[in-house]
């Protein structure tokens, strides 16, 4: 058993649990995009970051893969965490506005403006579809190609591979396939429909 502080409460968790596992167990909400239960963690979207404090040192870690540790303090809603999540939401929406999930997060975190040159790429490269196909469907039909900003989810040479059984599991798991409640939005547009109703309540420090 590992004992640590989670948002001000001293709690225990089993060795090997991730911070996200522990947070779920204790009913603490942490947003996730590139993680779902049953697929291996990938830690790419970074939305699940939380502050991990050990002694005098503090840093942000991805809760979906960082294991719990004896004696540390974890803050899931500190100003540093909220600040980082807001920026990440803004970054993702700048490239992928037509996602209900992302637009909801924007309202929740009070992101009301996109300050970056927007586009509509319809994918946040979370890699869930690839892991779904590979790990659950034994397909291995799709993968990442290219790198950096040129990275894409693709089928080799842009042809549907034989390995694809058209099961649709990749579509099912995709976090950005669902349109925002206001319908299709233009690049840079925000939904912000429920801005006033679902604001998060930052955890007061100390």
């Amino acid at each position: 058993m590992v004992t640590f502080v989670l948002d001000g409460q001293t709690v225990t968790a089993e060795e090997g649990w991730t911070i996200l596992d522990a947070a779920k167990y204790y009913g603490v909400d942490i947003p996730t995009l590139c993680y779902v239960e049953g697929l291996s963690p990938y830690s790419a979207c970074r939305i699940c970051v939380v502050e991990l404090i050990r002694g005098k040192k503090s840093r942000l870690v991805a809760s979906c893969s960082c294991p719990v540790e004896e004696g540390v303090e974890i803050r899931t809603k500190s100003p540093r965490v909220i600040n980082a999540r807001k920026m990440l939401i803004e970054l993702m929406l700048a490239s992928t506005p037509n996602s209900r999930l992302l637009q909801c997060l924007a309202s929740e975190y009070g992101v009301t403006k996109i300050r970056f040159r927007p586009e509509d790429r319809r994918c946040i490269l979370c890699g869930l579809c690839i892991r779904m196909c590979d790990e659950q469907m034994q397909g291995g039909a799709i993968g990442f190609s290219g790198r950096g900003v040129g990275r894409e989810v693709s089928m080799p040479f842009h042809k549907t591979p034989e390995a694809c059984r058209e099961c649709g599991a990749c579509l099912y798991i995709c976090p950005v396939c669902e349109l925002p409640c206001k319908g299709p939005l233009k690049p840079g547009e925000l939904c912000n429909a429920c801005l006033d109703t679902v604001q998060i309540d930052p955890f007061p420090s100390k």
Partner: peptide, 12 residues
């Protein structure tokens, strides 16, 4: 040179 895996580095 970014591998493009994580949001802050790729998009940021």
């Amino acid at each position: 040179e970014s591998c493009g895996k994580c949001t802050p580095c790729r998009e940021g």
